[in-house]
Design a protein around this nucleic acid. Structure first.
Lengths: 219, 219
DNA sequence: GTCTATAGGCTGATAGAC
DNA sequence: GTCTATCAGCCTATAGAC
């Protein structure tokens, strides 16, 4: 039975992709609130009801776009993972992350600044498949770089690299998200802010008397 | 003419305050999207049309709530400004800021994570009056603490304290905003993340060979 | 000042003809 | 599969009676 409609399923998949692509454009241009079934249907030249043949509803489309966005983010930062020097790699990773946010503001807003309704699944540790695990993979890249820094003695042996990766991520996220919402507030250019953030944090992580990130590390 | 309706204006102001208060509760409970003129009117026991006697429209109400939120934020962090030790003061300021965000999530979302439509005015340097300037005042408190640190030689003389204040603010904002959207992502408790963020940044700012925040400081 | 009524939109989602 | 028509609801804002 499933075999018999193989060709049709192929066509179905095509239209489904077109719906998704168009929906994505709408979200990127107008934000998530600008995504309406009616206007989406009109754009692809179909009646509104047809959308429901491919998606359960508007929320499912939004979730799918979210998944794509995370995959895109991972794709954007992955090249930086090839940098050999762990310090340079860390900087490259975080800077490419910031560039991604700046270059695709609406995508970033949807994926990282929106109601968790559409993406809470993404951050679960149980997430495994290719796209869903994009955030975890990206996070891993940062932790790995920090672990290398620990091994070569550039940061304290006792440092909690998971915690530090979270702090670094949050720090860069803070700059780019604030910038996306209030282009005028941090008056300094994003690149300078991100650069200073990364440099200062890394500087603060160098081996000193006290172990940074060692506080309450075991919970 | 204005004198003659003085009493009435007093009553007007009272109802206006009630509208605002109710609207504020709605936003805090349901988010900005949950603020509707109809339900607002119903809650205060008036017909929808009456709202327009006091406010030009929904957006004006939202803007007013925003103004209040900024004032509230300043109020929340101001006590920390009394701490004598500049390091302790800086930590106290940023921690009370984080506490404010955590304690009033919807208020914080509205004021710092929403479309700039309602609050872009707040970040302008020209903003002068009491409430509108709340953000600038709060920012000043941070810059002042950093300037003191500079004077006592705890951070480099060449440091751009304005830039550093922006980085610190953005760093804390990054933690709290990420937490508000994805309670599960940074698995670490907010207080630990904020603590590590502040400690690491300050640690990175101590006088070293290189001046942190001195890069591209003059623009 | 306050009301009712309504204009004029928008929305997601569904039923049933073809 | 695709359509039209529609349900059922939301919304902001305004007009005009009382």
């Amino acid at each position: 039975m499933k075999k018999m409609i193989a060709r049709k399923e192929g066509e179905k998949a095509k239209l489904k992709a077109k719906i998704l692509e168009t929906a994505r454009e709408m979200v990127i241009r107008e934000g998530f609130d600008g995504l309406s079934i009616r206007r989406l249907a009109e754009k692809i030249g179909y009646a509104p009801g047809n959308i429901y043949l491919y998606f359960a509803g508007r929320d499912e489309i939004a979730r799918e776009i979210c998944r794509q966005s995370y995959a895109e983010m991972l794709l954007a930062i992955e090249p930086a993972a090839k940098v050999k020097d762990p310090v340079g790699r860390l900087k490259a990773l975080l800077k490419s992350y910031a560039d991604f946010a700046e270059g695709r503001p609406e995508t970033y807003k949807l994926a990282f600044m929106q109601d968790p309704k559409f993406n809470e699944v993404m951050f679960r540790q149980t997430a495994i498949d290719e796209e869903t695990g994009a955030v975890q993979k990206a996070f891993r890249l940062i932790v790995d770089a920090l672990d290398e820094l620990k091994q070569v003695g550039k940061i304290d042996k006792r440092a909690n690299t998971n915690l530090l990766a979270e702090v670094l991520w949050a720090g860069v996220h803070g700059v780019v998200s604030l910038k996306l919402i209030y282009p005028a507030f941090p008056a300094t250019p994003t690149s300078t802010l991100v650069g200073t953030m990364i440099r200062t944090l890394l500087n603060g992580l160098r081996v000193e008397r006290r172990a940074p990130g060692s506080g309450r590390s075991d919970r």
